[in-house]
Design a protein around this nucleic acid. Structure first.
Lengths: 222, 222
DNA sequence: GATCAAAAATGAATGACATTCAATATAGAA
DNA sequence: TTCTATATTGAATGTCATTCATTTTTGATC
């Protein structure tokens, strides 16, 4: 065994492995995207044998979910402490949507979607109360879709926001940067106030030109 | 080489291979889901060597997209001919959303999402004109999100519908059946009129109980 | 500080695939 | 029939995620 690395490894080990793996996982998955991240590299960065990962996580998917939960928990904690940035809740709402629109790439898995949108919803809800729910409820009620539970409507809202986000993504496949997404979310929720203010002032990002007669081929949109 | 099979193979080959591969791809992917479908099995069902697939499709993903496009094109063609089933467009809208809610599973890739929602939007649009756009436009305008292009709003609407769908999916991971989804879409757009009427009459599917204090852990929702 | 059983870590081996490619077969023109 | 461009083939390759027989570490007991 490589003695030099082993020393460092021994020093770090023991109860710190799970944390190290989470950090390494976040690092690698952020850099390369979840699919391209290999368990091998994650293990190496955590100074841990390849098999060890499976003492802590059932599978790669399991690790990915844990990484996302970890990110989102940190985010949520910080959000708790924050006071208002914008005076008008509608501003926050619009800004949040805009951020999601700029952030999301196509390479999002459903669990990421769920996580992202849950947290977006939470962040907005905590800052603003039920304000923007009204708008989505308009949509649902106008469509006669029989949902009245506010909690559910709120949850639907968050997913709808992510649905929006997916809709106008420009660049197709390549790895989404979780870190970037988190930074955006931080801005969005008013934590990085300077960035947030600057971004909020920006006009709507340029949208891809719309084809005149709609067709059913995905290539028309990419 | 297996002579018996080779005869059949020769007869079928040549310009029918692409079609055969699309059919086999749809079959296998529908049965097992895209991830679990192997190129090997698809090639076998198409009576074709493993390497041949790559003469027609750049990659497995490419094949998956082609399969979906194929399905959706067939669907779109049939939709063109259809006359109204419901008298009230709002009924169709609500029914469409309900169908998506029942259909979608978590195991949806973004391209599937795109496809599905594009087609849903198309189907609804063709049957009803811009009617339901108004509702979503309410949401966007109320949020002060600066989108005015009707085509874009319509597109966002479709993705939002899928966002809704993702939101209340119960069963986590396992393979989604493309066929089933297509059948649902067919119903939704009024083609399978009997089913459609029956389903439209059904009450809203049962929703998972909402946790009282919202938290940031995905496990709270699954 | 020596001994030992339980727990954790290790990394080479396994198995599943997607994808490639050198060899072979076919089609259609000359 | 002959020849060439094109299509087909399936065994070989390479890339992982995951497993498992060994080895190492832990901390309890003497």
């Amino acid at each position: 065994m490589d003695t030099k690395r082993a020393e460092g490894r021994v020093a770090r080990r023991q109860k710190r492995n799970r944390t190290a793996l989470l950090e390494a996982g976040e690092e690698v998955m952020s850099e390369k995207g979840i699919d391209a991240a290999t368990m091998q590299e994650i293990a190496e960065r955590a100074d841990v044998g390849a098999g060890t990962v499976y003492n802590y996580f059932k599978s790669k998917d399991d690790l990915a979910v844990a990484v996302l939960e970890n990110i989102m928990e940190r985010l949520a904690e910080r959000i708790e402490d924050v006071t208002d940035t914008f005076s008008d809740p509608a501003q926050v709402y619009a800004f949040g949507i805009r951020q999601v629109l700029e952030t999301a790439t196509g390479d999002v898995r459903w669990k990421q979607l769920l996580h992202r949108s849950e947290v977006i919803a939470d962040a907005l809800y905590r800052r603003m109360g039920p304000y923007p729910m009204r708008d989505m409820r308009l949509a649902t009620e106008a469509g006669r879709f029989n949902v009245t539970d506010p909690a559910l409507i709120w949850r639907l809202t968050s997913h709808a926001i992510v649905g929006f986000a997916l809709g106008i993504t420009k660049d197709g496949l390549p790895p989404s940067s979780i870190n970037e997404a988190v930074i955006r979310l931080l801005c969005m929720t008013g934590l990085a106030i300077d960035d947030a203010a600057e971004l909020a002032a920006r006009p709507c990002p340029p949208l891809p030109p719309q084809p005149a007669p709609r067709k059913n081929r995905i290539s028309d949109y990419m």
